[in-house]
Computed example of a mutant assay.
Amino acid sequence: MRKLALAALVAAAIWVPQGLAFASSTIIMVTHSPPSDTYWVSVIKGLEQAGKDLDLSVQYRGVENNLNDPNQQRRNLEAAIAAKPDGIIVSDPTPSSLNATIKKASDAGIPVILVNQGGDQVANVGALAFVGDDPGTQGQMGAAQFNSFGSRKALIITAPPGALPFLDARTNGFKKAFKGTSTLAEIPLSDFNNANRIKSITESELQKDGSIDAVFSIGGCCITAMMQVRSDLGERARDIHWGTIDMTASAIRSLKSGELDFALDAQQYAQGYYPVVMLDLYVRQAIRPAEARLITGPVVITPSNVNHIEATGR
């Protein structure tokens, strides 16, 4: 019934007279992650459902390994521009590498929505808007959770400072808001897809400092490895609080088992769905988003409310 109600709502909001629908419109999403990544699986579900609801052709084009090769994302974006779609949705995790190409799309008259990363780059690339969340806020909300637990020493599983702007924002947001002290488990970007390497670096930092009572993963890349570390710690793990940014299948399992204290849900299904609606309205009715940013999250998910998330199938 909820799906039927949503479909009816969308239909009512975007109805146009018969003969004026753009059923052949094509929208391409280009991101920094492979379609197999558990975070982006939910984004793609939203993208595809919006395509079905609005009778549009939608395509997802990701890279082979998450975040490892901005050049591959740029090449995928260039190919998308050459295809001359009716709209492009693109993530912008590395503005220095991607902005010039994104602007080529908007300069060519292809409407662009930034998604997931790049919330501060809308004007720079001529995009209509950004759909996603604010990385600094994500870090601050994570810190607030640990503050509520009374944690005093946090280990942040993240990339080395300067590796990626949005990860720096998450890390700095956490450090700014956390009432205790913090240290970093620095994961090179080349190891973001290597759970064994993430686990080894994290365990090494925990062994160095027995006072650590909070561990915070900066993104979906590291959740599985972090939970493996928790398992290996045995009794000590019970004296540590565990939290993460991003909802993934691993995070849901760990929340249900009570091993993970919280996860910050970016509500990424909406990151796939809303940009399609925005582009469709712009193409058909020249309706521009009134605000430069549409924030989808984060919201805090805990063992007490995770079952509702799982029940949605997203």
Rank of each mutant, 00 (worst) to 15 (best):
G210P: 13
D191P: 03
F149G: 08
V131E: 05
G162E: 07
T181I: 12
L206N: 06
K199R: 13
A163Y: 09
E205T: 12
D134S: 11
I187V: 15
F174D: 00
A214V: 08
G150C: 14
K179T: 14
G173T: 10
I157H: 03
F130N: 00
L164D: 03
A177F: 12
S200I: 15
E186F: 08
G210K: 15
S148G: 08
S190C: 04
Q207A: 15
G132T: 12
N172I: 14
G173K: 04
A214M: 08
T171E: 14
T202I: 12
G173D: 06
K179G: 08
C222V: 14
L155H: 02
F130T: 08
F192C: 04
I156F: 04
S217I: 02
L167G: 02
A195S: 14
I201H: 02
I223V: 10
L128M: 12
I187M: 03
V215K: 02
G139V: 01
I157S: 00
K153C: 10
G139R: 00
E205W: 11
P160F: 05
K199E: 09
F178E: 05
G220Y: 03
L206P: 06
I157R: 00
A185R: 04
F216E: 05
A144L: 13
I157P: 01
G139M: 01
I201A: 05
G136I: 01
F178P: 06
I156K: 04
Q207Y: 10
D213I: 08
N147W: 11
F130E: 07
S211R: 09
F149I: 05
K179R: 13
N194W: 11
R197L: 08
F178T: 07
A143T: 06
A195Y: 08
T137N: 10
E205A: 11
S182H: 04
M141G: 02
T183R: 10
T181K: 13
E186A: 13
N193G: 12
Q140K: 13
S182Q: 06
G136Q: 04
V131I: 14
S190F: 08
A214P: 08
R197T: 13
I218W: 02
G219L: 00
D209Y: 09
T171F: 09
K179C: 07
F178L: 10
G142S: 04
P161Y: 01
F146M: 01
I212V: 14
A163P: 10
I201M: 07
I198N: 00
N172H: 12
P165E: 02
S200M: 15
A154M: 09
Q145F: 12
I212Y: 05
A129I: 09
G150N: 14
I198C: 00
G132R: 04
G142P: 09
D168T: 03
I218F: 02
T171Q: 14
R197K: 14
R197M: 13
A143R: 04
A169T: 10
R197I: 12
